[in-house]
Design a protein around this nucleic acid. Sequence first.
DNA 1: AAACTATCTGAACGTCCGTATAAAAAGTCA
DNA 2: TGACTTTTTATACGGACGTTCAGATAGTTT
Lengths: 225, 225
Amino acid sequence: MPQMPDHKEPSGNTDGRLARGEATKDRVLDAAERCFAAHGFAAVTIRQIAREAEVTLGVVSFHGGSKELLFGTVLARRTATLNALRTDALNALQARGGITIRDLVDAYLTPYLEIASRGDPQWRAYAQLIARIVSDDQYYMQVRDLYDPVARDYIAEIRRIRPDASAKTVATVLTLTVASMLSIVASRVRISGLSGEPASESALDYRSTLVDFCTGGIEQALAAH
Amino acid sequence: MPQMPDHKEPSGNTDGRLARGEATKDRVLDAAERCFAAHGFAAVTIRQIAREAEVTLGVVSFHGGSKELLFGTVLARRTATLNALRTDALNALQARGGITIRDLVDAYLTPYLEIASRGDPQWRAYAQLIARIVSDDQYYMQVRDLYDPVARDYIAEIRRIRPDASAKTVATVLTLTVASMLSIVASRVRISGLSGEPASESALDYRSTLVDFCTGGIEQALAAH
DNA sequence: AAACTATCTGAACGTCCGTATAAAAAGTCA
DNA sequence: TGACTTTTTATACGGACGTTCAGATAGTTT
């Protein structure tokens, strides 16, 4: 394995080479993110990523390490940001008080939908990538630990509202909520095929239907305990 | 491409070789189904499938054709059976009358859950495979046309019950229902991780929660039209 | 200037891929 | 039995894969 240029103090360095290297590394990670999102881990080749990033083959290994490591880096890169958005939204609700199931669903789903819709196309690729790997335990394990803590906060809040609900049921409905959210991002082709109307360009257009669905679903499932 | 042994009359043949060949073909398809379900199309090699089926390399091509063709065959093989189960369930409801949203949800989901749970492990692999490819438009297109007609029947029935709902909303909630169903089959790891309890062995254990969730979700989303 | 370091290039490596095919084996029918 | 067909084996081919690395290049420090 090549020694990777990881031990750079993020600020205060005056070496222009490090800054350029970091920029190249970002280009590689962005390209990898787009490729993995579009085709999945196994179907993507290092050479594709290099071409997409407009660098030569060796640069991908130099900045990204092995293919597996590169994939892991891409997966982990954005979790902190997304977690922060969800935590902030939850904190805002808690400060306000009078929280409903709908509030929680909306707070959890909206950051992701916004990211997948009008954000940076790079974020869009990331959202697609998460939607892709979530049905594969082998890959999903790599992000599970990163997302679960925040999910647990939401679960705790739901249980505060519905104290009678079992832990398992709450965990199940949150998982179903996430699955619904991801399916909207991953594949709107199906909806348009079934409804006969063209697919909306933005996942946000489905926000209200999605929130209604998940809210109603959670309330119903917890009422039946 | 090798000429594939496809032009065999299914019955009345006295040639034992054809029967043996058909049996081998089934073993190849079964092995391919398990492999594709576990790892996805790109990650699986023909040699893996051959090893899994306990045949030599050439036999896979002989009975399955190219890798793409083999994949398509595996995808299409079970759709007729599954469609029939769903259609029968719908017909039974229509004969009885007084159909509720919950009835429709249950009729649509249960065949799949049963298949994924206590059925043939081969059917289980198929369920996993569908769950995997549904987030990939490129592959999903191959089963879309096979499942959509029955889905449309269910949509028509929902619209009969809720005449005010828009076509797009109904298509959306059915898609969300399917996504929820698939997520239960594909990954129960997440639920157990979030709830702290061990995962149930059978997807059917989640049936009532799943049906509650989808029923409540559909009713809520359609009420808000 | 020279010494040094980080980044990048281009080419090569051994391995495994999907596919094809000639020949052997097994079974059927005259 | 011998002609014929279907299935299976064993092997080979060209190509693409992930990874490595010596050396070129560019920027920094002394």
